[in-house]
Amino acid sequence: MTRYEDLPYRTCVGMMLINAEGLVFIGRRSGGIEHVDDTHVWQMPQGGVDPGEDTWTAAKRELYEETSVRSVEKIAEISEWLIYDIPRTVAGRAWKGRYRGQRQKWYAVRFTGQDNEIDVASPGGGHKAEFTSWRWEPMQNLPDLIVPFKRPVYERVVKEFASLAVPLRKPVIGG
């Protein structure tokens, strides 16, 4: 068996989906051995990059496979890869013991569709649902909702994309 220190990182992408109100999509994970409680089960869409696949192409594919969303425009990306290690206690069980964590390329995208486009129960391409529910959340709240070992990555993503969490349209006042 390969030592934990010698395991590679899984190449992945992450997507921060921002709506017109400046809020961010988060999904409640349907499961996972890394989840420790009911508070830290939320995350943004993310997933693996196929061999030879461009990271932007992978990001759009993963977003569709997890949320059914296609109505997006790219507004930013983090130039370097962000890395996290999974706890040693779950490393042998996650991803069949092949990886010690992930190296992720992160993108921020503006959601240009309507909320009814989002379907986490029957996501695009016939993929198995990874989320049981979803909601829009203020960006600054995200690090407190993710499993603790991913928190430094989420803090960095929030810092990099903080200026993008602004409403595109003014709220209607009165009635």
Rank of each mutant, 00 (worst) to 15 (best):
E117T: 11
G126A: 05
G124K: 03
H127P: 01
G101F: 02
A108F: 09
A129G: 11
W106L: 06
R100N: 11
H127K: 15
R110K: 15
G125I: 06
P123T: 10
Q102Y: 09
R100E: 12
R100P: 08
P123W: 02
G97N: 01
A108K: 11
V109N: 05
G101E: 01
Q102C: 14
I118F: 10
K128M: 13
R135C: 10
Y107N: 04
A121L: 15
R103C: 07
R98Y: 11
V109P: 03
E130N: 13
W95E: 11
P123G: 04
G97S: 00
S122R: 10
V120C: 07
Y99P: 00
E117I: 04
V120D: 02
G125Y: 10
T132H: 03
V120T: 12
K105L: 09
I118N: 01
F131Y: 15
Y99M: 00
R98G: 05
Q104V: 15
V120G: 00
G113V: 12
R103V: 05
H127V: 07
H127R: 15
D119G: 04
S133M: 06
K105D: 02
R103F: 01
D115V: 12
R135V: 03
R103H: 07
H127S: 13
Y99A: 02
R103D: 14
Q102F: 08
K96C: 07
S133H: 11
Y99H: 12
Q114I: 11
S122H: 15
R103N: 11
K128E: 13
Y107H: 12
D115S: 13
K105S: 11
T132V: 15
G97L: 10
E117L: 12
G97D: 04
G113S: 09
